[in-house]
Design a binder for these strands. Structure first.
Lengths: 209, 209
DNA sequence: AAGTGTGAACCTCTTCACAGCA
DNA sequence: TGCTGTGAAGAGGTTCACACTT
């Protein structure tokens, strides 16, 4: 099996969600130019993306909506389910827990961790909260493979180290610092400050262009 | 002036923050390989990035820390200051307000909007909250040029339209839907679900590789 | 006629490798 | 000597354009 480009993976997530809506609307087929318009892309790129996952449509009918939706969801997330742990129950952590409360039956945040005893032992947005010292055991027991880090910058590396030691394979980091993980662990840093500064740059630039 | 690559802009934000720390530590100079290591990049790429903003170091001494920090901050954000508006005072909106409370004197969230009367009229994390109907006037009056959208998906396009009408030039959108803006408005969508699904994909893939 | 799938051209960004400088 | 600045090569992703299918 050929390697799927990382940009394709990112867009598949979006295609998948739009297709879910279309499935609910009982839409049977869709053309590349239609789905491209709905997702803000070009038809050629969309077809190239689907080529990447080996899915074919038919000229004259386009793509089968429910079939493609299923296909994409199985590429992204293990059909047998994947569990997620969140570390750091602050404002952002709570926002993310709330956000994922209903969605994604195959991809669930099943445990949240914090070092503040105030926050542990209860359930927030349907997610059980534990003390950070229990992280290793819980992650092993529940076979959690993905971690979300929403702790302050100063303790982010420690949080990541613990996740890695517990066997986590991929991490989404929200702390605004570059962190180190072994080569076999995937990590992406989502930097809020960077987003805002980039927007500021274009706001400034746009006015003079 | 030559166009600065978008990827360079993103990294400049990170370089800038690391340099701020170094300034506080009274560090005078730094080599490309040192700053690259601190930011998780390669020396060649870092030098290429600085070439992009026209900043030069000197062989044998490296880069002047405080000078470079200043230079970067002026590339990203207008030295005379830029104002930011946030729309949608939910969990995520509050998290972002708290997050930016102290930082970035030149780039401040000065107004937050919501359509819930419960949330308006007060001050959250140092930011004044208004009803969404006052958006146009406030944005004009305060010369706000950047918007952050943290409303539910269903009303995100409406929020963006209002921001654009009020004259906003760049938007960071946190709603998980592709939105439309005119060509002269910069918009970036930060999709939480996408991050998590991408991580899930690599977690799944990593275990079989 | 109006789609899809895809080789090839194109563009953007990264890395290499080395001349030139302190 | 050991760094910086940069031409040139390479890697990754996008778009073009067209043969093929229904």
């Amino acid at each position: 099996m050929k390697e799927i480009p990382i940009k394709t993976i990112e867009r598949l997530s979006l295609y998948g969600r739009v297709l879910e809506m279309l499935v609910k609307e009982k839409r049977a087929h869709i053309y590349s130019h239609e789905l491209a318009a709905l997702t803000g892309g070009t038809p050629a790129r969309l077809r190239r993306d689907l080529m990447g996952i080996g899915y074919s449509g038919s000229p004259g009918k386009g793509y089968n909506v429910s079939e493609l939706q299923k296909e994409i969801s199985e590429v992204l997330v293990d059909p047998s389910g994947q569990q997620v742990a969140l570390v750091g129950i602050g404002n952002l952590g709570r926002a993310i827990l709330t956000y994922f409360r209903v969605r994604r039956p195959k991809l669930k945040i099943t445990a949240a961790f914090d070092n503040d005893a105030e926050k542990t032992g209860r359930v927030i947005s349907g997610c059980r909260c534990y003390h950070i010292d229990d992280m290793h055991d819980i992650i092993k027991k529940d076979a959690i493979s993905v971690g979300i880090v929403t702790v302050p910058a100063a303790v982010a590396q420690r949080a990541v180290d613990r996740l890695v030691t517990a066997g986590i394979k991929a991490i989404v980091n929200w702390a605004p610092v570059p962190l180190h993980v072994p080569d076999d662990v995937f990590m992406e840093t989502r930097d809020i400050t960077m987003s805002l500064e980039k927007a500021a740059y274009f706001a400034k630039k746009g006015t003079s262009a």
